[in-house]
């Protein structure tokens, strides 16, 4: 296994570190399937996640947040950039090493109906991973019962099939499967988006309790800012394949810096809030195969300046926060 030579210092190091990650999908046309273009789904993303921390990744559909999660899991191949999980380079792992890593890196998808095998009983679903890695403690049945109890399901339902459960219960099964191997890191891709509010709250609470119990790290991918703000320690906002702002949750929600983050937050309908001071964005998200030059947000940005259509903004540190916007490059103006 490829181990980084430099051993960790006593300062806490991030569990997951991504540097300038790019995942592009080729667009093929014509008789010989020539690659004519690329959809730049993830286009230069850097971020870190620490142990026991939840990073919320928010953005609208097509911004590349799901592709980022899938690239981390090895379900999509990255074109360039680096991903380190506890100093192991995810981008250069052999399939065999990647399989070993599944013990530590797990995922919960949005739709349990399509991520749980309809022909498998719950006992087989939740113990498949631990059976694979020979980690069953006691009998398989007892282990499955323990797992179900942990996620708040009746232990006697182990011989039932996924379709016999409601949406919220099915998501609990997905969670039981994800935590079975005692992973350190779980990617939650829109894990509560398909659920009703009262059930959604149950699942969010379950994820928070499991995190406290096992010191889990989450990458919580969602389009729903309100949900993310209730579970994440930090939030990264994505737009068209790139991160535009990342900061502590309270900073992002109470004092968003990037014009896109501001528009996104003001667009969320909140009971009690008057919709009048809303920043309405013009137009729509441009295509990820031909992103606008300069700052990708500039055609829709209410604060666009001249520099925005020619130069892509660098990462600006602004009061200890990170924002990719020219507005914060010269705070004196």
């Amino acid at each position: 296994m490829a181990q980084n030579a430099e051993k960790s210092k006593t300062v806490e190091k991030p569990l997951l570190r991504i540097k300038d990650l790019k995942t592009w999908f080729p667009v093929k046309r014509g008789l010989f399937s020539r690659t004519v273009d690329f959809v730049r789904a993830v286009d230069g993303v850097s971020l870190e996640i620490y142990r026991g921390e939840t990073l919320g990744l928010v953005g609208e559909s097509g911004c590349g947040k799901t592709t980022l999660g899938r690239t981390l899991l090895g379900l999509e191949k990255s074109n360039s950039g680096e991903m380190f999980f506890d100093d192991m380079p995810l981008h250069a792992l052999t399939p065999r090493a990647m399989k070993q890593l599944r013990k530590r890196l797990q995922v919960i998808f949005q739709d349990p109906m399509s991520s749980l095998n309809p022909r498998m009983t719950v006992i087989d679903i939740v113990t498949e991973g631990i059976a694979q890695f020979k980690k069953i403690e006691g009998s398989k049945e007892a282990h499955a019962r323990r797992l179900l109890k942990e996620v708040g399901l009746a232990a006697d339902s182990i011989y039932r099939f996924p379709h016999e459960f409601s949406g919220g219960q099915r998501q609990r099964i997905s969670i039981a499967r994800a935590i079975a191997l005692r992973p350190e890191f779980i990617i939650c891709d829109e894990a509560v988006s398909a659920l009703d509010v009262s059930i959604q709250a149950q699942i969010i609470n379950l994820l928070i309790s499991l995190q406290q119990r096992y010191r889990l790290s989450y990458l919580f991918i969602s389009h729903d800012l309100s949900v993310v703000s209730n579970i994440a320690d930090r939030i990264a906002v994505m737009y068209l394949g790139q991160i535009v702002e990342s900061a502590k949750t309270s900073d992002i929600i109470q004092n968003p810096l990037h014009p896109y983050t501001r528009a996104l937050i003001s667009a969320v309908p909140v009971p009690g809030k008057k919709g009048l001071q809303r920043t309405l964005l013009k137009g729509e998200i441009p295509s990820a195969s031909s992103p606008p030059p300069g700052c990708r947000f500039h055609p829709r940005c209410p604060d666009a300046m001249e520099i925005c259509n020619c130069a892509a903004p660098d990462r600006e540190k602004f009061h200890g926060r990170e924002v990719w916007c020219h507005l914060y490059a010269h705070p004196a103006d």
Partner: peptide, 24 residues
């Protein structure tokens, strides 16, 4: 009352939500 309490609030404060136990 339960439904209104269960809605995740956009306040930037992290924490558990007041869920409604049980199923429909």
């Amino acid at each position: 009352i339960g439904l209104l309490n269960a809605i995740p609030k956009l306040t930037g404060e992290r924490g558990k939500l007041n869920d409604i136990p049980g199923q429909v």
